[in-house]
Design a protein around this nucleic acid. Structure first.
Lengths: 183, 183, 183, 183
DNA sequence: ACTGGCGGGACGTCCCGTTGAT
DNA sequence: ATCAACGGGACGTCCCGCCAGT
């Protein structure tokens, strides 16, 4: 018989995830010390590590969700809405997404482990293929390459947003939709 | 009185910068421990800290050079040549460029210090304006916005390259030049 | 007002002592974490600390019983039967006995507290003196010294048994008897 | 080119070994915290772990030497001299010997790793066999069993000595000799 | 009576940068 | 100019025991 309700447990878990997400986003994985995780979650190490194996387990739980959210949201609500929202809010999961890429890039062990896996979500690809069939996206470029282009743009955009640099949303979307060269 | 020639001193300094660049690129700032810097440079702590104040000073010296190289090279040799070269070589300075952005993003003190500064190089802007005047780039979008779009694309591309993910150079360049929507 | 019978309480207490004895014997005092005590007893922290002040109190309760069992059993059932039994079973209390000696030896506070006390059980001494009077043990060596010799042999034997090293029972008993028996 | 002489390095290493030996002997492996190792060696963590991989590496280096010294000294200087010396001095290596046995007994990983190895030194066995051939030790008991008997006695004696309990040297040697000497 | 969520002290380890020796 | 021994701060983790909850 658990001491507290499952709802409470779940709420605590979310509380930890939310606080840790902020900490990881703001300070990066290495910069998010346990002390900062305590501050940001409002809980002690004892509490945090009661829900997660260790710091890496906590980050992994967050990164797994947030790491692909950029592409998922593009599919769900469309490119334009995504860009508008992200640019306006600079959500913490955007920082976690970038931080996850950092860790993959710089930690030798993690790098080997994760790069084996599938690149990107298949859903983005499906969405593009469907858009091509419906005539909304150009079909003379392979869907896979369109997906990679979008990945490039979204990540590049994420960098500017998380750095707090100005992002000209409308012109950028226009360029993405049309191209930069003079006609 | 120096025992060795100035040329020797300069060579040693470059030796350190080169080795450290590899280390910072591969492991990130935090992951590049002094021990790894020693390995990669082939010199000892004493030598390294004789030329640079501390680890941060060494990184700053490298990052200052490499941080803007992406944009500079775009101006110097054109977008296409840059993309081809970067994708093929994955140069160490590319990793340093991304790592510099990481540090700016995650280290509170650095963040405040650097974001005050001018955003990006003025040279990129000049080059774009010139291209617009010469009719090679579209003029119905502000040069500043074109520059930011290029920044987005180049950084996004850098992420893929440094992660070792496939980058479809020709299609990507085509999309950048034209746009993704069906005509 | 207790909700359960005294018999139940006593049974629970024994359950805890038994499980904890196994844990202390296997892992030592420091290695027997509360988590392992929970596993081994099948009860939770709350239950354990409801019956015992703290981890040390639990160990002390066990060690007090088991610490002198070696000598007690020698008196009760004779040396030969004891050696046979111990070598065959490697009982948990044997490990606790050794672990208690360790703790006394290495914990400064415990050391001072326990070494004041009487060395060994008086019963062993009485038994030896009686054996001497009855002509079963040699009388040309002081009973106190015979007791200490037996203590040495029993502890040394305990080390081999708990380590799982082979113990040649019959030859060993023969050598001991040739030392202590009356001619 | 080393900064300091090899003699200095070797002296430092011995200084660390000596201090750590005292700490391990007095407090046991777990009780010998890094802080206590610093106190006892008079050096900092930086110095200690410059010479040894980690705490376990330091202990292993000491234990490997001291773990078998009891049997070695028995061979080298004879049983009687050994017992006299050990009882009078309670040398730190005696505590390390016992502590090594503790660790082997209680640490699951160490246990598996070490119990595979050969039991005891072959030298003790050779010495006994030679003594048997020369008529100084009884030959009607297998040398291997005599060795194990001696192991039992020496370890049991070590416990009493390290605990600070009185050890009646002459009577004890007399009893042991009546067991092992040739008639 | 019993559970287990949680706080927080202490420990081993990592690693930066100083310093004194070549 | 270069080296490597060394001091010491900070971090992640372990884990004891309290107490709120049932």
């Amino acid at each position: 018989v658990p001491k507290v309700s499952d709802a409470h447990l779940e709420a605590r878990r979310e509380q930890i995830l939310d606080g840790a997400r902020r900490a990881f986003s703001r300070y990066g994985y290495g910069g998010a010390t346990i002390a900062r995780l305590e501050e940001e979650t409002g809980l002690s190490r004892g509490a945090i590590f009661n829900y997660f194996e260790n710091k890496w387990g906590l980050f992994a739980a967050i990164a797994e969700r947030d790491g692909s959210r950029l592409r998922e949201l593009a599919v769900e609500q469309g490119l334009d809405a995504l860009v508008h929202e992200v640019a306006a809010e600079n959500p913490a999961w955007l920082g976690v997404h970038l931080e996850a890429l950092n860790v993959i890039r710089t930690d030798p062990r993690i790098r080997e482990a994760t790069l084996q896996e599938d690149e990107g979500s298949a859903e983005l690809l499906h969405w593009i293929e469907e858009s091509q069939r419906e005539g909304r996206m150009r079909a003379d470029v392979a869907a896979r390459d369109l997906a990679r282009f979008l990945d490039v743009v979204l990540n590049g955009m994420a960098i500017r947003v998380t750095l707090g640099l100005p992002l000209p949303i409308e012109p950028l979307l226009r360029l993405v939709h049309e191209g930069i060269d003079a006609k």
